[in-house]
Design a protein around this nucleic acid. Structure first.
Lengths: 334, 334
DNA sequence: CTGAAAGCGCTAACAG
DNA sequence: CTGTTAGCGCTTTCAG
């Protein structure tokens, strides 16, 4: 690989001049500029960003850390982040932790060594406090969707309790009284808040809570599948199921299909998170929709405010409202 | 951020010693080692990888460049790549080009400046020859799924023509003679090969090809939706549809649902690419399945052979076989 | 066994 | 308008 030195020699100028010409389109005399440009082209020179980053202390890269790359919720968020990053001429790299706190630690270490200028993170578990090692002052980060209480940073979240409440209230209004919950990971705020919304919806109409109806599905496809099978195996199975995320909904539907339980005739279903296929599934799925793309753009904007130093001192927390999208997977209990 | 200098001062040794202790667990005397370790912990020192990368010429990062992050095919490939990368103690960063050759160029430039040690790429378009700028000798890369003919590199691909052939032959055996094709991007090899398989299956049984039945869907959800609507609007609509990828299948199903065309009673459907929801869709979708995860691990292994210099001189091309997964979305024409 | 010094490729004062 | 020089934080000979 040619370096700036080679270009300087070829163009017969100093390396400083090459650097300046390359970084400032109208530096120097016309002749020199053209000599440098010609040499650059001739050698196929590409500046070494590693070296540049070292002296500038900036890499022009941000990271987005997500727990499950196969979950459309996160990939949709990613599209939002990418769009604002490209506006600021930044690249975004995606890091998948696979719901694994250890992998998350590895990525955090990588970031702490200045490989990115900032990052957006949806934590794998809020039981892991490793994030506290990051000094938000020198390496800004913002939470999206899932945060760690106690470790302060800007955050873009959705009112999960409200979303779950809306879904379960709807089921309750339809007359259901045995509503199964395929719950999310209890070591995430979102998991706990959705559980809380489920409970609170029951409480607000004086309905009884049955502990055998609440099963942890760990936010994964497999977990959702197992939880649903367990629910179906109950001596008194639920007449409706509320599933706390995307991935688990896939597992739940699979279990329902295997058991040949008809939706909505034999069981009503509501999922948290919309997805591209939910709409034309048959029957079309009723879901709680989160504004994923917007969450991504907002998180991106705040992060760049921090990176550019234009953000206010105090941390901001933006809470978005989820929305109930009623389709045809629920029916009234007669 | 503390630097190696700070640690050296704190431990009262030279920076060279700190560096050596940190990189070689049994360097130096026991006392010195412990002094260094204590200082490291006390200051919360984290080596600056940018600096390290500069002197070592390695970043311990590889990139995976994909055209559509919302497509499960690619995210599943990504899981495979990640698993082998972590085996080699590498991080993988994901770069989404959004089927856009310009974005792809930007990423390639970023890589050429030594920000990664190598990359795996599924090209956005093989009409763009920018990739030729990277010198595979200094910056190894391997193709996955979609490649650029004329720009030599290792490749992991699937026999797309064979996959399409299997699907269409199956439809033909079922008695269908007007089979719609929602085709992939014509500027990708995969798109062209799948089209070729469709044609060749017809030829091999002497069936006529109707040009009005072959519509380009551009590999996107929207494209699949529009193509299907066009197919449905024909004076003589098809009795079966073969869709050349995942994303377009979603669009196709949406169009079919809107037009209230029943699958498989009124139309038979086969998609290229399996997905998590295809199985419990009703009816369960018959698809051509690619070994996505395996493709990712193979690509990763070859890339590391190149990075570590243990690969043979000549480029390898591994062609995997897709498989027809028959479920319930096709019926025989009586 | 330890430290001084060179240098990775680049930018940014500072001189000339 | 251009060039010299001093680092950025780290690894790595090479002496001591």
């Amino acid at each position: 690989m040619p370096t700036i030195k080679d270009v300087a020699r070829e163009a017969e100028v100093s390396i400083a001049s090459v650097s300046k010409v390359l970084n400032d389109p109208n530096y120097g005399s016309v002749q020199m500029r053209s000599r440098v440009m010609r040499a650059t082209r001739k050698l196929g020179y590409q500046p070494n960003n590693i070296a540049r980053s070292m002296v500038m202390g900036k890499t022009k890269i941000i990271a987005l850390v997500i727990p499950d790359i196969r979950n459309q919720f996160f990939t949709s968020v990613a599209r939002g982040v990418e769009d604002v990053a490209s506006k600021y001429e930044y690249r975004v790299i995606l890091c998948n932790t696979d719901e694994d706190a250890t992998k998350q630690r590895e990525y955090i270490d990588t970031f702490r060594s200045k490989i990115v200028d900032g990052f957006i993170i949806s934590v794998a578990s809020d039981r892991d406090q490793y994030l506290a090692k990051v000094d938000g002052q020198t390496l800004p980060f913002v939470y999206i969707d899932r945060l760690c209480e106690g470790i302060s940073a800007d955050a873009i979240v959705v009112d999960n309790q409200d979303g779950a409440h809306k879904a379960v209230s709807y089921l309750l209004e339809l007359g259901h009284r045995r509503i199964g919950l395929v719950a999310g990971k209890s070591d995430t705020l979102t998991g706990r808040e959705r559980l809380r919304g489920y409970q609170e919806a029951h409480e607000s109409v004086g309905a009884n809570l049955h502990s055998d109806l609440m099963i942890d599905g760990g936010f994964t496809i497999e977990g959702g599948y197992e939880a649903t099978k367990a629910l179906l195996g109950l001596s008194q199975p639920p007449t409706a199921i509320f599933i706390a995320n995307n991935a688990m909904t896939i597992g739940c539907l699979k279990a329902l299909a295997e058991a040949k339980v008809k939706i909505p005739d034999e069981i009503s279903v509501i999922g948290f998170d919309d997805s591209e296929w939910a709409e034309f599934f048959s029957p079309p799925l009723t879901v709680v929709r989160q504004p994923t793309y917007t969450m991504g753009t907002l998180a991106g904007e705040i992060l760049f405010q921090r990176i550019l130093g234009t953000a206010p001192q105090e941390k901001q927390e933006i809470v978005l409202r989820p929305e109930l999208v009623v389709r045809e997977s629920c029916r009234a209990l007669s």
